[in-house]
Each structure stands twice: as C-alpha cells, then as structure tokens.
Design a protein around this nucleic acid. Structure first.
Length: 276
DNA sequence: CTACCATCCTGGTTGC
DNA sequence: TGCAACCAGGATGGTA
C-alpha cells in the first residue's frame, strides 16, 4: 500500500474525477473492512456533491457539500480504481463503489481489507480519534530538523521505528523510512534520541526530499497498485535501498552491498557502510 | 515510556 | 505440478 506519496497521487486523481460532481450512486458491496462501514453510510453520501479532496497523513478526506467528510484509509492493499466501463463486472474485492452524475465510477478495491471508510462532520475532524495525535505533515511548513528533533528527543527506540510512528511525522511508511535514512546516511538502528542537530536536519530534509520526488514520479507502485487514472507509478525504479538486498549500494562508491534486517517485524534495507 | 509480539486478511512468490 | 511456508505498503492493542 500506499504511503504518503501514493495517497497524495490517489487524492489528485480522485479530485479530477470527483470535485464538483455529485455522488449519484453509492454502493456498499462489503461492509466489514478494518472497521465496519457506518450503518447509514450509503444514505448519507448519496446525492451529495464533492467539494474537495484533501489528505492528512495517509488518510483521504472527501469533503461533501453538507459538511460531512468521508475519511478513507487504503491500508496495505487498498486501491481506488476508475472503472472505464461502470457496467463492467465487479472484482471480488471491489467493496465500495461511487458513481458520479457524470457517469464515472470509482471502485474501492481492497483484497486484505485493512483499509477503512468512515464519516465525520467537518467540525469534528480536528479531534477525530483517527486523526488526533498525528504528527506534522512532512511537506508542510512546520516540519523541519528542529521540529523533528523535538519529537525524537528522549526516545530510546530505533530511528527506523520512530519514523514509522505517525505521531512523530505523518505519512512515512516502510519504504520511504528506509529511503530517507539511506539518503540521510543514518543507521536504521541508531537510537532516535541521538538524532538531533545536524543529523535531524539531514533526516528532515531527506524525508521531505524523498517524498517530494516520489510524488513527482506519480507515487511508487507495487504489483497491484493502480492510480485513479489507471496509470502505474514508477518511483519504484528510483529506490536506492528498498527491496535491493544483496545488490550494490548505488549513489556512492562505498562498494558495499545492501543488507536487510527485521525491526518491529518489518523489513529494513540499508547500507552498513554509508549509514551510521 | 519502550520493546516486542500478535492480529486483522488475502494473494503472490519461493522453495522443497 | 502441488503444496506449504513465507512475505507484503499499516495500524493497533496487549504484555513484560
């Protein structure tokens, strides 16, 4: 699934299809996602106009004309697929379908059902349980080395795990945590509390840079990840370490090989020579 | 607090 | 070719 760049890319694709359009038809084909769909999900959405698509961390926020907000998370395997032909047969994992007054169909497809959709009122968003406590947006003005250092201060956990903690910084997942640490030259095992000063500056810059580049590339795309436009992202071709165990370290002449280790039950890829 | 583990669920890949 | 083990982008809750 989708980390921040992929969710951002999906949001941009959704905005093109949905903003200003009414949801003429809403279908809930399967309600038992990570959390059950609200009982009145279909009724509250049908006929509403989509004002704006926004993103917070890895959440998609669909603002509707009656101040309702659809909060969606893609989990690990969730996709928003534009159905070229709304009458085409459904896939087994097409769980929710939105069809606009322009006749465009968006299918939320999620094989693993780790994704979720729920509804909130716009004035409740700030304190919403799913969003409260999430850290700064890494592409926002408030995120920099000093802000990152503050949130890492005193943490005895490895920096890799800290980057995956959504209260430290929003939207970073396993792939971009690996890539940012490589770019910053920091060992994934380094204790988070030691990432201060210049190291924090380097890491904050690397996080911002790698996410920005991934968005520019249209988001990374794993095997089954398709953007709303139907195109595949291609940032995976630019991964320096992720998924490259045993391959040579690129971008420097350290002649080392990329190694894999397991932290918090997740794979970490890194260059032991370059990252300290 | 922190580290560590399991859990939700399905499908693709790898190895015997 | 068959089948089992292992792995996967996330988030959360429990335990020590």
């Amino acid at each position: 699934m989708p980390e921040l760049p992929e969710v951002e890319t999906v949001c941009r694709g959704l905005a093109l299809k949905l903003e200003g359009r009414a949801l003429a038809r809403v279908e809930a084909r399967r309600r038992d996602l990570r959390q059950p769909l609200p009982r009145d999900f279909v009724r509250r959405l049908t006929g509403r106009r989509v004002d704006r698509i926004a993103r917070r961390a890895k959440y998609i926020l669909m603002h509707l004309d009656d101040q309702t907000v659809l909060i969606a998370h893609l989990g690990m395997s969730g996709r928003m697929v534009v159905a070229a032909d709304p009458a085409a047969p459904f896939d087994a994992h097409d769980h929710v379908v939105f069809t606009t007054d322009a006749g465009v169909s968006i299918r939320f497809n999620d094989a693993r059902r780790f994704g979720l959709m729920t509804l909130a009122r716009a004035d409740e968003l700030d304190g919403h349980p799913l969003l409260v406590g999430i850290g700064p947006e890494p592409l926002g003005n408030e995120f920099n080395g000093r802000a990152l250092a503050e949130r890492l201060a005193g943490k005895a956990t490895p920096i890799k795990a800290a980057l995956l903690d959504q209260t430290v910084v929003a939207g970073v997942g396993n792939i971009y945590a690996c890539e940012a640490l490589f770019q910053a030259g920091l060992s994934p095992r380094r204790l988070a509390r030691t990432v201060q000063g210049d190291r924090a500056e380097r890491l904050a810059h690397a996080v911002r840079d790698v996410l920005t580049r991934a968005i520019a590339a249209g988001g990374s795309s794993l095997r089954d990840h398709v953007q709303p436009s139907g195109e595949l992202g291609y940032f995976q071709h630019a991964w320096a370490v992720y998924g490259r165990e045993g391959e040579p370290c690129l971008g420097c002449d350290c002649d080392g090989a990329i190694r894999r280790l397991v932290q918090s039950n997740r794979s970490t890829f890194y260059c032991a020579k370059r990252q300290r």
